[in-house]
Design a protein around this nucleic acid. Structure first.
Lengths: 149, 149
DNA sequence: CCATGCAATGTTATAGTGTAACATCCGCGA
DNA sequence: TCGCGGATGTTACACTATAACATTGCATGG
């Protein structure tokens, strides 16, 4: 995670983007949570450090981070998660465990190809695929755990 | 669409599920919109016919329709769309056009296989895939239209 | 050094999406 | 008829996100 922050610093420096205090802090909070985290959770945690913080502050930071590929949004959860490799042009495929609530990024080229070719066969040009696979992670599978407690 | 409604009737009859007046009406409204439609839009339209209608009425009908595969939810749009073939076990892959706002269902087996095998390779068991491909439909591609007006 | 212009942040209010909790109704079988 | 369960009505609220405008702060050229 410290690594992810450094990578973010480097990436922003290279692009001339400003990783300000707030943006950095939000990125850190996103990473610190080992699960996808909601904007209002970030809001609350950020508020603990800086007194009253309003929603736009958090959403603006998230917009910036997403625009630079440092964070992904998971639409089916209304939640945000750090991107493990913001350098490459990431597609973002997610494995979302309904047992423990964790999410892992997949980025499988075969899936990407299958999607693009399937869509192309219908004459459709994919621009922003949303791939979010709800299911069971290896841990929860083994334990036969029920839905997230 | 009339066809879709009949198919829904049959399917519910076969399952002993009750396609009540409200549920039927909501399904009709979902189909009538040729784009994915928001719950509050349905709410408003339903309200025009029946006087005041509260959100839970619509959400409960949608929950029922989704549970029976008659309607899909598109998470990236917070919107709902009728399912063209509720009989088969549908996976639900959607092509969402950012030009005209329309959405088409794909259901490509190759995509489904790629996803399941990719996830399985990570030890993950997919239960409810969310596949929503934002891009350009053939029409909007041709016209080079800008984002939905 | 100051002006000034632009990006970032602060602030207030509100829009949009979804659910909890409890009351009521209605049909059906014991 | 009574009671039961599923469906609907009703109220209130939680959660997610953005619009609109004010303010700050910093780089940059005059």
């Amino acid at each position: 995670m410290a690594e992810a922050l450094e990578a973010a610093e480097r990436l922003c420096a290279r692009r001339g983007a400003r990783l300000t205090e707030i943006r950095r802090r939000v990125l850190e909070l996103v990473w610190r949570s080992h699960q996808p985290v909601g904007a209002y959770t970030i809001l609350e945690r950020l508020g603990r450090e800086r007194g009253r913080v309003a929603p736009p502050t958090v959403y603006r930071a998230l917009d910036f981070l997403i625009a630079h590929g440092l964070v992904h949004r998971i639409a089916s959860l209304n939640a945000y998660i750090g991107c493990a490799h913001p350098d490459r042009d990431h597609i973002g495929q997610f494995l979302v465990c309904s047992g423990c609530g964790s999410a892992a990024e997949l980025d499988d080229r075969r899936i990407d190809r299958a999607i693009r070719s399937g869509a192309e066969a219908a004459g459709f040009a994919v621009e922003r695929p949303v791939i979010e696979l709800a299911g069971r992670c290896p841990n929860c599978r083994e334990r036969g755990r029920d839905a997230r407690t």
